[in-house]
């Protein structure tokens, strides 16, 4: 485990906790895409099925369980507990346009044609685009609450740090996994536009709003 990966995991965890706390404290999930959160629950579930098949470390198992639990807590809050505050009218991204292509791609391009491996690959592909419903929602309403911006920023930083982790692993372990790297690159690129807005606006104390 290198520093980039650890900080990446930490950043991912911080992102999730920020969002959970935001919803819980404000008793509202306004501005949050339930579809993106549901997709993340699918991503974690399909990727971490290896919890049942092999043990890597207590850190690994612990983080996986926490991510899965948090993602389901999020879905429960949005679609059940605070359903009345969910902004479904603006959450109109068609998720089948993400799920179907990534599922097909996972069948075509994978390391090993076995159920667990295909599901793992699917989760990697799906994760890279799972934030799109949320970004679409922000662009549709033209703004995001500052705390939502922090969430998106921390989530974007997570995969960016993983890119550095993969460069590190290639350099010092001679190891690389093209599936993870390409998907991670796509995922990071999707955040670039948002990173720009975050740095130029949110960090200067302004609310994130898009020009009309």
């Amino acid at each position: 485990m290198n520093i980039f990966r650890f900080l990446g995991d930490l950043s991912h965890l911080i992102a999730i906790v920020i969002l959970l706390l935001k919803i819980w404290k404000s008793r509202s999930c306004a501005g949050i895409s339930g579809k993106s959160q549901a997709l993340f629950a699918v991503v974690f579930t399909t990727r971490y099925l290896d919890l049942f098949t092999n043990f890597i470390s207590f850190y690994n198992t612990g983080m996986k369980v926490v991510y899965i639990a948090c993602s389901y807590a999020m879905v429960w809050m949005i679609y059940s507990k605070f359903k009345a505050t969910y902004d479904g009218n603006h959450d109109t991204f068609r998720v089948e346009f993400l799920v179907a292509p990534t599922a097909i791609l996972a069948f075509l391009v994978n390391h090993d044609f076995t159920p667990l491996e295909i599901l793992w690959t699917f989760s990697i592909y799906l994760e890279s685009v799972a934030i799109l419903p949320q970004l679409f929602m922000v662009s549709k309403t033209g703004e995001a609450e500052t705390i939502t911006s922090h969430y998106l920023f921390a989530l974007g930083v997570y995969r960016t740090l993983y890119l550095f982790n993969w460069i590190w692993r290639y350099q010092f372990e001679g190891f690389f996994d093209l599936i993870a790297i390409v998907a991670g690159l796509v995922q990071t690129i999707l955040y670039c536009d948002f990173f720009y807005l975050y740095i130029t606006k949110v960090l200067k104390g302004k609310k994130l709003s898009l020009p009309a």
């Binding site: 690994n60 993983y162 190891f175 996994d177 993870a180």
Partner: peptide, 10 residues
């Protein structure tokens, strides 16, 4: 068969 190495990542 040994699992792919990135599978130790989150």
């Amino acid at each position: 068969q040994e699992p792919n190495k990135t599978h130790d990542e989150l």
